[in-house]
């Protein structure tokens, strides 16, 4: 099971790196989303896998009885998913806005803030 998770994390990271090397920032963003999912899976795995034992406290008890899964990594992953969702939504809106304003999603063509000829002008 751990091997399977490790492999899927590896595949996800590889795919995301491939996407993030693209000049199209939308693709970069998709790569980022994949990468954050890969990391979430990794955190999940790093909490050790205990299948079939949800960390639930039985009625009348104050602590779980027997061996249960580690709840902390699940909480961490949940937090990370929520934050990641918010950031992704914001960034997607930002990319859309940028496309509408600048007319491109190619990062090489985005030179408004850093004009190419700034150095040349200084030399004159």
């Amino acid at each position: 099971m751990e091997l399977l998770l490790a492999l899927s994390v590896g595949v996800l990271v590889a795919a995301s790196v491939y996407l993030m090397l693209d000049r199209n920032i939308l693709r970069f963003l998709f790569g980022l989303a994949l990468l954050s999912n890969a990391v979430n899976l990794m955190i999940f795995a790093s909490g050790r896998l205990t299948p079939g034992a949800p960390p639930l406290i039985d009625a009348g008890e104050y602590a779980p009885t027997g061996v249960v899964a580690n709840a902390l990594p699940q909480a961490l992953v949940l937090t990370a998913i929520v934050i990641g969702f918010g950031l992704l939504a914001f960034t997607l809106a930002l990319v859309y806005r940028t496309f509408m304003t600048l007319g491109t999603v190619n990062s090489d063509e985005m030179r408004v803030a850093e004009p190419v000829d700034a150095g040349k002008e200084a030399g004159k």
């Binding site: 918010g86 939504a89 809106a93 859309y96 806005r97 509408m100």
Partner: peptide
């Protein structure tokens, strides 16, 4: 509120 802010903004754009 957060979700609706986002959805309204995207829907309008």
């Amino acid at each position: 509120g957060g979700i609706l802010t986002l959805v309204f903004a995207l829907e309008q754009e």
